[in-house]
Design a protein around this nucleic acid. Structure first.
Lengths: 158, 158
DNA sequence: GCATCTGAGTTGGAGATACAAACTCAGCCG
DNA sequence: CGGCTGAGTTTGTATCTCCAACTCAGATGC
């Protein structure tokens, strides 16, 4: 059975892309990883429209990727901060994969702008593809997509 | 210097997201990986509007991720097919990272829909984060972002 | 006690995108 | 010749994005 007979939306890539597949969501998550936590700081740094940021944050909270948490800086009134949940922190692999591709294929005139380092040893962090048997998967390596129990045929409602 | 002083757009994640940060681009690339090559096949499988698919494919061709290649099936007239370039194939790590996250956090009722296998040994393929010194980077591991030569301060034109 | 500032949104209107459906166009098929 | 098919293009409506202005609540200044 050809893969196109399976429903396009019932796919982990499609499910993830429904959340991150937008110009801003990815950048919001990136900034949250980098410790930006407040609405105005995100808005100014990203240059995103305020209403759009409101909607993106609400979506990410809905999806369990971000937590909206009240806090009170000493001597100030209570505010909210946005922090990644455990599920959100699991997106780091996705972020690093995007960064690796950009570094390799869109480096800019003076080379890549940032380097992600392991805090303990200072070495650069990158993504790798490996199979469960331990083989390294080079870009040219052939892979095979196998349908599992969660697969749905196109045109059927899950 | 806080990271927010650096320009948000001068970032490999931002550069990659400008191309893939859209509901359809990611899915188009996914289907191209899976061997779907023709306009109508893509359009029907994804359920995307035809004009949007035209624009996405044009963007991906512009960005050097997809090649529009004429070909002639035996006994038919000449057509076009869309195939990934080397740069496009390098996006596999991104795709697998998205898939891994979806499998872990949005598996659906009956578990993940698909499994990606190494064709030679049959074992599942996943992404891993490692540092250049060989340490495995767990989700909780602290990392540090270091500005390089390509970095730009916010508000400056590159 | 009142005016002001600031962080965090909400609202409103102009412009850009997305969508679905209809239309075009070229070549093959009977 | 008339119809079919693959690959778009066009068109009109619905939705989303953007920007700017407005709101609101608590701290701050006087």
């Amino acid at each position: 059975m050809p893969l196109t007979d399976y429903d396009s939306a019932t796919c982990s890539i499609a499910r993830t892309a429904r959340i991150l597949g937008d110009r801003w969501s990815v950048l919001v998550v990136r900034d949250l990883f980098n410790g930006v936590r407040r609405f105005d700081a995100l808005q100014q740094h990203l240059g995103v429209a305020r209403d759009v940021l409101t909607k993106r944050l609400a979506l990410l909270v809905d999806e369990g990727i971000v937590e909206r948490r009240p806090y009170r800086p000493a001597g100030e009134r209570a505010r909210h901060e946005y922090v990644l949940t455990a599920a959100g922190r699991d997106l780091r692999t996705v972020m690093v994969a995007l960064m690796d591709w950009g570094d390799a294929h869109r480096p800019g005139e003076d080379g890549p702008p940032m380097s992600l380092r392991h805090r303990e040893c200072g070495a650069e962090i990158h993504t790798h593809l490996t199979c469960a048997a331990g083989h390294d998967i080079a870009p040219a390596t052939r892979a095979e997509l196998v349908p599992l129990a969660g697969a749905r045929l196109a045109g059927t409602q899950a």
